[in-house]
Design a protein around this nucleic acid. Sequence first.
RNA 1: GGCCCGUUAGUCUAGUGGUUAGGACUCCGGCCUCUCACGCCGGUAGCACGGGUUCGAAUCCCGUACGGGCUACCA
Length: 489
Amino acid sequence: MLQAPDEARALGPQHKYASEITRMPVRVRFAPSPTGYLHMGGARTALFNYLFARNQGGTFVLRIEDTDLERSKPEYTEVIHEALDWLGMTVDEGPYFQSQRTAIYQAKALELLEAGNAYKCFCTPEELEADRERALKEGLKQMYSRVWRDRRDHPEGLPFVVRIKAPLEGAITIDDMVQGPVTVGAEELDDFVILRSDGSPTYNFVVVIDDATMNISHVIRGKDHLNNTFRQIPVYTALGFDVPIFGHLPLIDGLSKRKGSMSVQHYRDLGYLQEAVINYISRLGWSHGDQEIFTMDELIEFFGFDHVGRSSGRFDDDKFLWVNAEWMKRLDDRDLATRWLPFLAKAGFEVSVDERLLGIVAVMKERAKTLVEMTEAAHYFFSDEVTLDEGAVKKWFKPGLEVIFEDIVADLSALQSWTPEHVQAVYDAHCAKHEVGLGKLAQPTRVSVTGNTVSPGLFETLYLLGRETTLARLKAGLAIMKERAAGDA
RNA sequence: GGCCCGUUAGUCUAGUGGUUAGGACUCCGGCCUCUCACGCCGGUAGCACGGGUUCGAAUCCCGUACGGGCUACCA
């Protein structure tokens, strides 16, 4: 993996190496730290791993990187797993926990120590800090001095860390599936710490051992790890491991700012559909021609690194909302109704999936962008507490209407069959009889029955409301009309 | 500071030397219409900048600017 600079640049040997590994079974991993909820950025990393695994007939491994005991919390592992499940990414293997593998890491560190590929460093944190400050002041590279790299005069009983011996010359080139060939010279590489003074291993060491011993063929992760890759490769080499193929995904801007508002379950609670989340994040950095809407099956079929972009994207709430609205329309009524239930229950509407609910879903789903929005927009179907909007009443309850509505109420009461068609026939008849447009009657009806001027088609709405409710609300509206007419006179 | 990476409309993107630079979200018109929404039609808006290479560059090379990442006994 290490070679002279010009050779590395000219040969691009990883090309050859990569193709050899490609014939091996694909094993990828998603390796989050359990320090919080699964955020949209992490979900996308997981998704790209998952899609690649499924597309290649490979294995999707979950590994929990909980070596940071300070910040890691066991409950977050469950939360992350739950989010993956909800999104439909089934884990084939794991979760593995780094915290349970310390013996392996220490054994490997010892192996490196004995082979002379790593060494003990007795510098104190204070000394290192002083070195860094001096380097900063003099404009030099901020890098460990390597004073202990070849020293034999180890002091007794003093705390020490173990550092890897990074190459002193040459260059390292990787052929990244996303970034293409990237080369870093050995002069940029540091002898980084692999074992802390308390004996615990560090991330850049652990990740190599895990990926290697778990036979990970392709390491797909955020681009923030790209530079670390060059630190890690000497570890692979020193331990005699094969180097996997890397794919460093562009980062997503604007995620870290709105704190807490972008975890997967946050969007789930806002009434976003699992399909929409998958669909939207898949398009952040990946594309398939002009297609915008994808099922998971399509994503699995179409996904490939040849169409993963290199530039970072931005999370766009408007577009995400649009994707969700598309999925609301696409799901069949029964499926959507089932998913709607918890939101209705939360709003205090205890209903079940029956013909009526399916009818409501059918007319509401293309009028709402989220399940939460749909709940709010459909409240009058489930609650009798409809308060008439003052402005709407003022605008639509015109004097004279009370006469017509008296008639309409009478005719509706007498209807033998309560269907949208029969209800419409009543309204049509009164439009003709009183020589008014439907709008003049529809809006006052809508206001009476829903409290406002917005609803699905009037006759569908009245049908779904049922005769009893419709008449009760119409009569209440009529009373107000009469009141206003009397006040006017 | 050093190293690595990026830059097509406000946003997500197509594009791999020859296109009137395509699609989508947003926004603005219009149609449909009992309201809203959907749908349909149309519009505004883009290759960061400067040099090359080439008959020809959004596409290739160099530089500049801007943005991001890494540079820990964090992950």
